[in-house]
Amino acid sequence: MSFSLYDASAPVYLNMLRNLVAILDKAAAHAQANGVDIATYLDARIAPDMHPLTRQIQMVSDGAKGGVARLAGVEAPSMPDTETTFAELKERLAKTIAYVESLKPEQIAGREDETIELKFPGQTMTFTGASFLTTFSMPNFMFHVTTAYAILRAQGVPLGKMDFLAGARMAGA
């Protein structure tokens, strides 16, 4: 059995989205146990010129749903960036998980060489399906997951590497 574009995308997005939900749960429990206003986590950032936690979570969602949608050649659902609470962020992640789960392997199968264009103000980036996933979509997605983790870790939430890697499977397991 060969390893497909679907195998390299949807399950990875799903695992990390679920891990992020668990990380948010751990952050909420930490805030409650320590008398911390959880809103301080939502506005926290690593550096002044970086986006706060709320925007990092929104970008994780956008990266996952946009990534699989582009690979499948379909339009991703629109989700306005209006979340202001942990509950709303978790709801957005749940909707993103449901969307990624709704795409079937056959929708992505064989699209490794399909052209994917991303249009930005003043620039268009052109990829094959495979290069989009490996050089843009997955690294960008992981950047925002990692940044969300790092923001919460910097706020004192007791997170470790296994919180980030939860759900990893050994061969044959």
Results as ranks from 00 to 15, higher is better:
E106Q: 15
P52L: 01
V60G: 03
E83Q: 15
S61L: 08
V145M: 07
N34E: 08
L17H: 04
D113K: 14
T54I: 06
A173G: 09
M138P: 01
I38T: 07
E117W: 04
A109Q: 11
G122I: 13
Q123I: 12
P48I: 00
G160R: 12
D37R: 02
L93V: 09
G156W: 11
T124P: 04
I151T: 11
V36H: 01
G129Y: 04
E75G: 05
A72K: 10
V68S: 03
M170I: 08
E75N: 11
M125E: 08
A130C: 01
A171H: 07
V21G: 04
A33P: 00
G156D: 09
T96R: 07
T84Y: 06
R18M: 11
L93Q: 07
A27C: 04
S78E: 14
A148V: 09
M1A: 14
F141E: 01
G35T: 01
A28K: 10
A87P: 07
N19E: 01
M1S: 15
M162F: 13
L118D: 09
R111V: 10
R153K: 15
R169T: 13
L42D: 00
L20H: 05
T134K: 11
G122L: 07
S2A: 15
V60S: 00
F136A: 04
M1T: 13
L152S: 03
R111M: 12
F86P: 06
S9A: 13
I116W: 02
G129F: 03
Q32H: 08
F132M: 03
Y6S: 14
M79T: 12
T82F: 07
P158L: 04
V145F: 03
L118P: 06
L89E: 08
T128Y: 05
T40E: 02
R92T: 12
F120Y: 13
Q155H: 06
A98E: 14
E117P: 04
R153S: 13
D43Y: 00
Y149D: 05
P11T: 09
R92P: 10
T82A: 13
A28D: 11
D25F: 02
I97E: 10
P77T: 09
L20V: 03
L133S: 03
N34G: 03
A47G: 00
M59L: 13
M59R: 10
E106A: 15
T82I: 15
P77E: 12
G110K: 11
L152W: 05
G167Y: 10
Y149M: 02
Q123C: 01
D37H: 00
M170N: 13
Q56Y: 01
A87G: 11
A27V: 03
T128A: 08
P11G: 10
T135A: 04
E117D: 15
P139V: 05
H30L: 02
M125W: 06
I108M: 05
F3K: 15
Q56T: 06
A171V: 12
T96I: 10
P80R: 10
